[in-house]
Design a protein around this nucleic acid. Structure first.
Length: 572
DNA sequence: GCCGTTTTCGGCCCGACTGTTTTCAGTCG
């Protein structure tokens, strides 16, 4: 059983226990579910390596849960779960996924109407049975039907690249109001998570009614969930929920901190406040009745004895401990990049010429750009063979002759064959400035074989950068099964640079891999993977990803000037 | 059920809004 499936099992147990009104245990199971999802190594491997003792090393896993995991590994089943399921044989996960439906309502629906599935619920709501239940009414019935409709439409999460521009535009409109003194986007958008569930916007205003009226009147609004003077919640036509909160100036920092999250980071901060005899909420940091901080986030962190934690790090993954010791990383900045090492042109599947790409890159302030069109293994893109590559090199020489402010590097996105060899011969690779290698086929190899395949390719003395190392496409394609620890190790040994592909559908490496790579001293590069001039600016998402992985400027080789950058590559 | 410079028991983050209430439960973040 995979980690994600096991996590789901525990999450369901948490829901069942909540339905029964059990105290505290649901949190314990939920916590383990999160921990399992965050775990890089398959639980099975972990167990094989260290048995039940190793399982207990997982945060939140104690004796009872370790035994339950062992039971699943040995028998494929969990008795405790089966019993809970038998007692209340309902699709808790499906039902609670409906907006406004939680475990208590699921239980009510089952007890009163024998509703087990989303389909059952939809039917009951359509014929008007739901509104007759205690605590539910006509409005809840309608809300449930709307929630079911929305669920049918999709996952409910949006890749950050698809929503950030709109959110920033809405922020800008609010900023333009005379009644608004300050406005900031908080939530997972501010933390620059890979996908966004909903957006939170905070504002300071003395006339909140007017701000809320303006907000709900925006043309993108499809539905108003609720509207008050401090909190208003809407759904946009694209399906995303956006909350706007108006807070007093003296609490703005506290509110910003609170609504930026993550939830885990907040909980940890509150614990620290508690230990100091203080109370932290969205209105400020209090000693008794007295507010001792709250106007800015900086004040709050300082009052808690912590250095300021950048939003991208706020996941309770050790940043609070580091902030306490003054050991937070000096993160790579959004303006630090000097070059872009993965771009495609009309020579293959890009839509702009070498010259157009170079000119746009120069306009964006870059000093160098590598042209890395596909190679022959990717026939559908018109991938280059050796001959075509040599021809393109000559074309690049010509462009370099006419451009002054930027250097165009000769590169390629070379296919890694199934056996780990490359699809361009070494003699030609040797003549390129930058060789990127990437997997574009045979995604379903077993873990061991895939790992060996890529390691072999990395050992090629010409292979400078491993492009999009896991191959995932967010919400479309799973990462292929590969041992990333082994790849990081090989990158270290061979001096191969690992790419953070900034294209918002990829964001590959993931944050936890970046963090491991940084810890191992592996060099990173942030690329746009641009297929047109409009994509070149997408590197900002890669920088965000790098920051979420604790990367510093020194870890990212394309923050360096050209000559220094070239010295970071292999030179056989 | 987990966890521990309050370690083997007694805690476990906190508040807004809705819809249903007639003082609050449930959901959400």
């Amino acid at each position: 059983m995979r980690n994600a499936e096991l996590a789901q099992l525990f999450r369901e147990i948490a829901l069942y226990l909540e339905m029964q009104g059990v105290q505290f245990k649901p949190r314990a199971y939920e916590k383990v579910a999160y921990a399992l999802e965050a775990l890089e190594e398959p639980v099975l491997e972990l167990y094989k390596r260290g048995g039940i003792k190793a399982l207990r090393e997982i945060p939140g896993v104690g004796e009872a849960i370790a035994e339950k995991i062992e039971e699943v590994i040995k028998t494929g089943k969990m008795k405790y779960y089966e019993e809970l399921k038998q007692e209340l044989p309902v699709d808790v996960r499906g039902l609670t996924a409906i907006e406004g439906v939680g475990p208590k309502i699921v239980k009510l629906l089952y007890d009163q109407l024998r509703i087990k599935t989303v389909a059952d619920l939809e039917h009951a709501a359509r014929v008007g049975k739901v509104r007759k239940l205690p605590h539910l009414g006509e409005k809840m019935e309608q809300k449930i039907l709307r929630g079911i409709e929305f669920l049918k439409q999709g996952s409910g999460r949006f890749p950050i690249g698809s929503v950030l521009p709109l959110i920033l535009e809405m922020e800008g409109r609010l900023r333009g109001l005379a009644e608004v003194q300050e406005v900031v986007v908080a939530g997972s958008v501010r933390r620059r998570k890979e996908t966004i569930g909903d957006a939170d916007i905070l504002a300071i205003s003395r006339k909140p009614e007017k701000v809320m009226d303006f907000f709900v009147a925006m043309p993108e609004v499809m539905h108003i969930h609720g509207k008050g003077t401090t909190k208003t919640m809407i759904k946009l036509k694209n399906g995303m929920d956006v909350d706007l909160r108006v807070v007093p100036a003296e609490s703005f920092g506290a509110a910003l901190n609170y609504f930026t999250g993550s939830k885990d980071h907040n909980v940890a901060l509150r614990r620290i406040a508690q230990e100091k005899g203080l109370k932290l909420n969205e209105y400020g940091l209090f000693r008794g009745e007295k507010r001792i901080a709250g106007r800015t986030e900086e004040d709050i962190y300082q009052a808690l004895g912590l250095s300021y934690v950048p939003p991208e790090l706020r996941e309770n993954q050790g940043e609070i401990e580091a902030a306490g010791k003054g050991e937070l990383p000096d993160l790579v900045g959004y303006d630090d990049l000097r070059g872009d090492l993965q771009t495609q042109t009309t020579w293959t599947d890009g839509s702009n010429s070498i010259e157009e790409m170079a000119e746009e890159a120069e306009r964006l302030g870059l000093q160098y750009i590598a042209i890395t069109d596909h190679t022959k293994g990717l026939a559908m893109t018109g991938g280059a063979d050796e001959k075509k590559l040599l021809k393109q090199m000559a074309a690049i020489d010509k462009v370099n002759g006419s451009l002054k402010g930027i250097t165009v590097l000769k590169g390629a996105e070379v296919n890694i064959n199934k056996d780990g060899t490359l699809d361009i011969e070494d003699g030609v690779l040797a003549r390129l400035d930058v060789v990127g290698i990437a997997v574009h086929s045979h995604f379903n190899l077993p873990r061991q074989e895939m790992t060996e395949r890529i390691r072999r390719a990395m050992r090629n003395p010409h292979a400078d950068i491993l492009f999009h190392p896991t191959g995932r496409v967010i919400q479309k394609r799973e990462a292929y099964d590969v041992d990333m620890d082994a790849l990081i190790q090989t990158a270290k040994e061979t001096g191969t640079v690992l790419e953070i592909d900034a294209y918002p559908d990829r964001l590959d490496l993931k944050d936890e891999h970046i963090r491991k790579a940084v810890a191992a001293g592996v060099k990173l590069v942030i690329d746009s993977d641009a297929h047109s001039i409009h994509h070149l600016r997408l590197t900002e998402f890669g920088v965000a990803q790098a920051r979420r992985g604790w990367a510093e400027k020194k870890d990212v080789v394309n923050t360096r000037p050209l000559k220094e950058f070239l010295r970071c590559l292999k030179h056989p």
